[in-house]
Design a protein around this nucleic acid. Structure first.
Lengths: 261, 261
DNA sequence: CGGGACATTGATTAAGATCAATTTAAGTGG
DNA sequence: CCACTTAAATTGATCTTAATCAATGTCCCG
């Protein structure tokens, strides 16, 4: 088992996680495994859309797509015609300003709804790049609109999903505005840890799918600073970090640092 | 006229602006002056909601509200039952984390739709504090939902309005993550300037309604740093800043600094 | 005229950026 | 399977920027 940690060649990238994923409940009639497992943040919306689309005979089955590691699910400037429910793998959402500096906006993990950055203008504003091979369900914009039209609840759900993304950015803003480099890393790891847990993986020990550079671009720091922050947290016996493999030794201490002072 | 700049006691706070606001067009039948002037960012949505609500006899006239300087339009934790279209004055949207640190999320100006931070959970997440006496139109959540239900276009408009807020935060994120203090101030002033212009005021010369502390909390810096950045921009002949009164001397230089390198 | 909030300025310290050099590990091809 | 290449990460030394601490200045308002 330990070798699995170190090699970690599995496409899903979660072999290294010591506990098994939550298995879907018995309701195999569910359209989506994730919804059944409770891990999906947009399960209600998603199943609403699907049943609506099926009812109107416009889709017969779930439309899936695989994105290989390093490939883009979509790119900034592409016309937004689809949203994507992520159900395996992870990505980075990357914005690039005209000076070529990049900023990572988020690291979507299974359960996330991708493509919301295309709503405002009808074109995506970010690149969605797979950090490892990933699988998504495709939700066409038209299906989603049809569904929203037919039910107030679905419409509200969709608004809330967009609003939740807004909250993510507001929170990140607070992190960048008020926290030291060590605190930012702590906050970042706590968030990752929680999301690993909500996907049924260990919250204490996992593989970082992103490079130090990605982390730096997410948290508004330089990669040397990221590296040094990891080192200091390790010296303080809060973490064990070795390249991409991370385990949390002292969760309370990490929380004290990361929960914004 | 010059005395008006310096005293600036006007409740609306725009006396100091040398050019007059855009006057509403002749269509006095319009429900809202701002929509007629083209200054309102949510005009389509707003008029949609109003005409819908009137058609169903649920509102007879526009429901307005005044917020005095320093007062809250709403507070974090309040139940979200209304949205507010700002048509005069300006506010700050303030989040406070449990450690008591505050972060300014935005400085809404006329045309903005307020209250979107209440969508996700049904409770507002920010305090909306008037920086000067302000006037809003009240849009009840139920009116808005009723309208969205009855028309796909209104629904889409609403989604886009929420998504636009998300974009604001993404952009601010990039500012905090990548720019020096001077660049942040430049970027902030450019944004203010543009919004002043789109409200029909001078883009070159205006009064800052917010304190240095508010600016600091918006841009993730300390007030001394804000002050020094202003001073340096002044010394570089890019700005003229005297307390709250600001005029832009060299717009190109300001853009070079503020447009993210 | 004087109190108090707001803003500026100066001196010093601390944090992170930058520059530069290794180290480590993973993938490649002979 | 091993040497070689390369991307990623770490570490050290130094420099720059912004935070901090402290004092002073300015203006609004009663």
């Amino acid at each position: 088992m330990n070798t699995a940690y170190l090699s970690a060649r599995d496409p899903q990238g979660y072999l290294a996680c010591p506990i098994t994923p939550i298995t879907p409940s018995a309701s195999s009639s569910a359209l989506c495994k994730m919804a059944a497992s409770g891990a999906c943040s947009v399960a209600d919306l998603c199943s609403n859309v699907r049943s609506n689309a099926q009812a109107s005979f416009r889709i017969g089955s779930i439309n899936r797509r695989t994105v290989r590691r390093g490939q883009a699910l979509y790119r900034a400037g592409d016309t937004c015609v689809n949203f994507y429910q992520l159900y395996a793998g992870s990505l980075k959402l990357r914005m690039t300003n005209w000076a070529g500096e990049e900023q990572i906006a988020s690291f979507p993990m299974p359960g996330a709804l991708l493509g919301l950055d295309g709503i405002e203008t009808g074109k995506y504003l970010c690149d969605a790049i797979a950090l490892e091979d990933a699988r998504v369900c495709v939700l066409s914009l038209s299906d989603l609109l049809a569904c929203s039209r037919s039910g107030t609840e679905a419409m509200l759900q969709f608004n809330r999903v967009i609003a939740r993304e807004t909250s993510h950015y507001r929170r990140l803003l607070m992190v960048l505005a008020n926290m030291s480099s060590e605190e930012r890393i702590a906050s970042f790891l706590l968030d990752l840890s929680e999301r690993m847990a909500s996907n049924g993986y260990s919250s204490r020990e996992f593989i970082l799918k992103m490079t130090r550079e990605d982390i730096a671009h997410y948290l508004g720091m330089k990669i040397e600073t990221v590296s040094r922050a990891f080192t200091r947290l390790q010296l303080a016996n809060i973490l064990d970090v070795r390249r991409r493999h991370l385990s949390i030794r002292d969760l309370d201490a990490l929380k004290k640092l990361g929960m914004s002072h």
